[in-house]
């Protein structure tokens, strides 16, 4: 499978948010603004690529019965690494994302790709798969975050264009998250069906 196709599949055909419906919890919770969604997506991307590579490297020697604990330990290591790095160098975003950074460990996408792809393919291909799915996740989170930000706070990437007023606050809270996600999913799948 060509490396490029792996990446593009993760973006569109296997988009984790709108097609695979994985990782819904961080999707709904961290997309209150475009920047937050983007950061969460990039954080997950970091973990995805690295854990995919590591797991594909060790998969041949991991005994069958303990493969899940081993994978989780590897994933958790990368997430903790990410956490320490964010705490040290991006403290503001670390505070904003808060609890959801350690929750990347249990994000279905990460373990899912590890099991479904990385454990059965080579290191470079797994990296590409991780990159593709991670990019797909990042894009969908950014788009969702952008929509919620525009409707909910009248801002685009933090810049308020409606004179400092609030937008429709339902969109920066849980109900709006579900509504936006639902409608975006409709649009995405409609576009997918057409092509």
């Amino acid at each position: 499978m060509s490396k490029f196709k792996l990446i593009s599949d993760g973006l569109v055909k296997n988009n984790p948010t709108f097609v695979l419906l994985l990782g819904m919890c961080p999707t709904l919770a961290t997309t209150t603004s475009a920047i937050n969604g983007l950061s969460m997506g990039l954080a997950t991307l970091f973990v995805l690529v690295l854990s995919n590579m590591a797991i594909s490297a060790i998969a041949p020697v991991v005994p069958d019965k303990v493969h899940i604990p081993v994978y989780i330990v590897v994933i958790a290591t990368f997430v903790t690494l990410l956490q320490l790095l964010m705490q040290a160098y991006t403290p503001a975003m670390y505070e904003t994302l808060g609890l959801f950074i350690p929750l990347i460990v249990v994000n279905c996408i990460v373990l899912g790709r590890a099991e479904a792809f990385a454990s059965k393919h080579g290191v470079l291909e797994s990296a590409c798969d991780g990159l593709g799915v991670g990019l797909g996740f990042t894009c969908s989170l950014t788009v969702l975050g952008l929509v919620r930000e525009i409707l909910g706070s009248g801002c685009v990437f933090g810049y308020n264009f409606i004179g400092g007023n609030d937008g429709m606050l339902a969109f920066v809270m849980a109900p709006g998250a579900f509504l936006c996600l639902g409608y975006l999913m409709v649009l995405f799948n409609k576009y997918l069906k057409k092509n």
């Binding site: 991991v62 005994p63 069958d64 303990v66 330990v73 290591t77």
Partner: peptide
């Protein structure tokens, strides 16, 4: 690609993984 599990290699692999990660 899975390796057959037996007590020795399970303990070894898990132990090594945890040591390395820590």
């Amino acid at each position: 690609m899975a390796v057959k599990s037996n007590l020795t290699n399970m303990v070894t692999v898990l132990g090594l993984t945890c040591l390395l990660c820590s």
